[in-house]
Structure formats: structure tokens, C-alpha cells
């Protein structure tokens, strides 16, 4: 199966959330990155058929999202975990999954129940399944959210901040699950946790002001910071022309890791990480915005 976005634009009264996005994805896990307000959630809502684009075309397999039949067909192949997960607090986890399974059109009761039991095991929720959702912690709710994504064996999976609220062990388990799904499905993972992308996504797309500013191998994004990542020794303050990636206490003061186009005087070059590459890319995108329109201020 293939997901194709062709010149997709979404205009809201407040501005353009998605701007002329073209993207083609095949099976595999792709990370969707971008700062807050970059248009990630809007783009995902368009792909799920919840929002209609103002312009452009979206196709999933042979189905076109512009038609009602196409949207219904795509929703039948879809597993979606929204960022704001609104579960019914008066249902148990098991009942919630059964309800979503019904709404997903899994009419065969026996098959639906078998899937639910299997998924509860896979997300480690079997022991909590008969409790009302109102008694769940944020992490348990997230796990039910992840289980509902997989109901109906979807071929297109879109997850928005799936590991928010999960503890490190749960996150690792989820990353492994996501990786195993990507072998024969399209999986789009939107997150701010770059470690999740580094671990799970061979490819990544970065949105900035509604536009795709990078789409390619995850390693390629890391390479965007090659020759631009430096560590400043203790006692040397970072200048205005660099972005501070982190600061750590060291003997004699604070040691800064920075990304910038020029090597600071006392800076020691180091190998970049995905985080460095992401920051370098956004720096470059913002500089490009400024050159195109001096009125645009950096986020």
C-alpha cells in the first residue's frame, strides 16, 4: 500500500496550517517531526479523513480521500491514536475496545473479542481490562489507546504523541511494537521525543510552518548538523548565533552543547545526534523564512 499526498494545503481563518505538502510513503515507520504549531496534527487529521484539505489530493492505496466512499474505505484501513485521547471513563478498558471495534466495523463478535484479548496481552493491559477507565493512570489510558489503534489489523497507522505519559519501560515496549508493525504497514509516528524517532523510524519528515522541510532517512537528518555541533568548555557562554542543545554541570562551571553554522572560538566539534540535526534543520528553515520575509520572527 502507498500513501500519496499531492500539493495538500489546509487554510484556516487564522492562517495556513498545511502548505503545499507533497509526500509519498510506502510500508515502514516514518517519524513526523516539527515544532508546536507546525501543522503535524492538522496533516494527520487530513490523512485520517477527519479534516478536508482546502486544496490538493490524498490517496491511500487506490482510495481517494476527496470522495465519501474513499474516506470510508480509508477509515476501514486506519488505526489512529489522537494526541488528546478521549476515552469513556464509565466503560472498562475491555468494553472501550469492544465499542471502538464495533465502530471500526468488526462485526464478527468472536473475531473482535479474540482480537481484544490478544491486544490487551500485547500492550500489557490484561490485568487491568475489567477496571473502569476512570480509575486508570495516564499510562494505562495510553496503552488502551494503543490497543484500539491495532484493532482491525489496520494497514495505515497514525499515532500522535503515543508515548506521552508512558514510563521508560512502556516506551521501549511500544517502540518494539511499532517497529514490528512497520514491516508491512505504513506507520506515521508524530512525536516530540526524538529518541523514539531515532529508535523506531528509518525515515523522517519534518514540518515547519506547514511545509515539509525535510523528508528522507533519519540518518540524513542527523547529518544536517555535521560540522555544526560543538561542545563549549566550562566557563564559556554560548553566543547568540548558536542554539543550545543542552547544558550540563561540569568542574568549573557549565558545559554547553551547541549547534550553529560557525564554530565558536573555544568550541570543540563533536559527532551530531538526531536532536542536533533537527535543531540545525530548523535553524536553517528559520533563516530561510527571514530571508524570504523579514516580518517572520523565529518561534
Amino acid at each position: 500500500m502507498r500513501l500519496m499526498l499531492d500539493a495538500v494545503t489546509k487554510q484556516f481563518p487564522s492562517g495556513r496550517a498545511v502548505d503545499d505538502v507533497s509526500l509519498t510513503l510506502g510500508p515502514g515507520v516514518v517519524g513526523l517531526l516539527g515544532p508546536n504549531g507546525a501543522g503535524k496534527t492538522t496533516l494527520m487529521r487530513i490523512i485520517t479523513g477527519i479534516l478536508r484539505p482546502t486544496a490538493g489530493r490524498v490517496e491511500v492505496g487506490s482510495h481517494d480521500l476527496s470522495s465519501r466512499a474513499g474516506r470510508a474505505a480509508i477509515k476501514r484501513t486506519l488505526g489512529y491514536l489522537p494526541q488528546e485521547l478521549a476515552l469513556y471513563p464509565d466503560l472498562t478498558g475491555w468494553e472501550m475496545l469492544d465499542y471502538i471495534g464495533l465502530l471500526k466495523g468488526i462485526d464478527d463478535k468472536r473475531a473482535r473479542h479474540a482480537q481484544i484479548e490478544d491486544l490487551l496481552e500485547r500492550v500489557g493491559m490484561a490485568a487491568h481490562a475489567k477496571r473502569r477507565i476512570r480509575t486508570y493512570s495516564g499510562g494505562l489510558k495510553r496503552r488502551i489507546g494503543i490497543a484500539q489503534v491495532l484493532l482491525g489489523d489496520p494497514r495505515l497507522i497514525i499515532v500522535d504523541e503515543p508515548t506521552a505519559g508512558l514510563d521508560p519501560e512502556e516506551r521501549m515496549r511500544f517502540r518494539a511494537l511499532l517497529g514490528s508493525l512497520g514491516t508491512d504497514r505504513i506507520v506515521i509516528l508524530s512525536t516530540h521525543i526524538l529518541e523514539d524517532v531515532a529508535q523506531s523510524c528509518p525515515r523522517v519528515a519534518v514540518l515547519h510552518h506547514g511545509r515539509i522541510v525535510y523528508h528522507g532517512p533519519t540518518g540524513g537528518l542527523t547529518d544536517r548538523a555535521a560540522g555544526q555541533t560543538f561542545v563549549l568548555p566550562s566557563g564559556v557562554a554560548p553566543g547568540d548565533d548558536v542554539s543550545v542543545i543542552n547544558a550540563s554541570s561540569a568542574i568549573g562551571g557549565v558545559e554547553y552543547r551547541v549547534v550553529g553554522p560557525r564554530q565558536p572560538a573555544a568550541g570543540r566539534p563533536v559527532d551530531p545526534t538526531l536532536e542536533d540535526g533537527y535543531v540545525a534543520l530548523l535553524q536553517s528553515a528559520r533563516n530561510h523564512d527571514h530571508r524570504e520575509d523579514p516580518q517572520i520572527h523565529a518561534i
Partner: peptide, 17 residues
Amino acid sequence: RAGGDLLEATPTAPTVR
């Protein structure tokens, strides 16, 4: 309505829901 996107993303028609 608070069910929001989770329910909207299912193939069941809004009228049925």
C-alpha cells in the same frame, strides 16, 4: 462530542453514532 477524533476516525457514519 468529547470522544472527538477517536470516534471521527472510525468508518461508522456520524448519524449512526
